[in-house]
Design a protein around this nucleic acid. Structure first.
Lengths: 151, 151
DNA sequence: CCAGATTAGTTGATGCGTCAACCTTGACGT
DNA sequence: ACGTCAAGGTTGACGCATCAACTAATCTGG
């Protein structure tokens, strides 16, 4: 009772192939248009959503659901490239806060436009509203499943 | 005309979150059970499907749809860990062939069992046959879309 | 108030993935 | 033949992701 049925195997193979290809083209287009990686983009957008373009690292980490060392490494690289700056956190002197630079803010907006357009072009324009809803539903079910067994 | 509608944005967010979580869980379980990465696993399975557990690098690369340098780096690491060996290719002296070691063959089988079971547990057992078919269909559509605009 | 346990964040090592540069060998037109 | 070009593969550099070990500040129980 362990094996996948044929339609299951086919579905999994299609999904895996689609996933690999889609993230490839989206990442490449984003990099070509803005010089940002998807990781950069996620961080910039998440920070830009906050008042004053500033957020505590902890909150950012929880919002992104990233490992702490992943965020730390990413922020170091982004700081070196002048996209963000890190400042002290007054509520908790262990913590730190992240603020967008002018360049970071500008790139966040630019990148969002390009990225959303690419998602629309590659994904949304290809699917019916029913298929989009189905994708959302399936994703939600699988997420629940993972949360339940890993909490 | 550029922005995503609300249901589109929700669907995309769910998909992205599901994708990240699912690949995390599957990768972690595979590593815990066998010590292999997903990249290792893909290679082992692809080679193990061939007669004599041997393939030419070129064929492997086309089957996996990997960049050539990616495959080269991956094979170097796998050779160092004793999962495969690389030998000369007689049809074309530029080329090379990949053969599983005994350990590689053993791990390929072991890993396949664990991985399929995890896919079944996390994905297939959570979805109806209709949802599985919908996932396959959606994936196929998006793949076509990408192929068309990138070929 | 103090000692031990938690928590925020950093660091270093290592594997993965991409790009660009490179080397060798085969293919092809003339 | 031969010169040019393309293809198979390797390498080095760099960014991304995870793990484990570490530092420093906060929390908590007594």
């Amino acid at each position: 009772m362990a094996d996948l049925t044929d339609p299951q195997a086919v579905a999994w193979a299609s999904y895996q192939r689609m996933r690999a290809r889609l993230s490839g083209v989206l990442g490449r287009e984003l990099a070509a248009a803005t010089g940002l990686s998807e990781a950069d983009f996620e961080v910039l957008v998440a920070v830009h959503e906050r008042p004053d373009d500033t957020v505590r690292s902890l909150a950012l980490r929880c919002g992104l659901e990233w490992e702490k060392s992943r965020l730390s490494h990413q922020l170091r690289r982004m700081e070196q490239r002048g996209l963000i700056i890190r400042e002290a956190c007054e509520e908790d002197s262990r913590g730190s806060a992240v603020r967008l630079t002018a360049r970071g803010r500008e790139l966040a907006c630019e990148a969002r436009k390009h990225y959303d357009a690419a998602v629309k072009r590659y994904v949304m324009d290809s699917l019916t509203p029913e298929q989009i809803a189905a994708l959302a539903e399936i994703s939600g079910i699988l997420l629940d499943r993972i949360e339940v067994t890993h909490k």
